[in-house]
């Protein structure tokens, strides 16, 4: 996910995180099969803002690294 461009869309294929980060990511609705779009990035390029299921979610690149995305 880290390498996605602004406004790029894609679908989550896997979330490779266990424990707390994994749970937090899943609690917010980021599970395989979910469509996402990169809404933008913070002024220092981290965290990243995603559009998921009609709302905006931010996560750090570190957490984004757990998420694999198939880019459209």
């Amino acid at each position: 996910m880290r390498y996605m461009q602004d406004n790029q869309e894609g679908m989550i294929t896997a979330v490779k995180a266990a424990g707390e980060p994994g749970r937090r990511i899943r609690d917010m609705g980021l599970v395989p099969g979910t469509e996402i779009k990169v809404q933008g990035r913070a002024p220092l390029y981290d965290p990243v803002a995603l559009r998921v299921r009609g709302f905006i979610l931010t996560l750090r690149n570190k957490e984004a690294d757990y998420i694999e995305v198939e880019v459209k």
């Binding site: 609690d27 917010m28 965290p47 709302f55 905006i56 979610l57 931010t58």
Partner: peptide, 10 residues
Amino acid sequence: SSPFVMELPP
């Protein structure tokens, strides 16, 4: 550090 997974509410 705690995961920074945060909603940006409208």
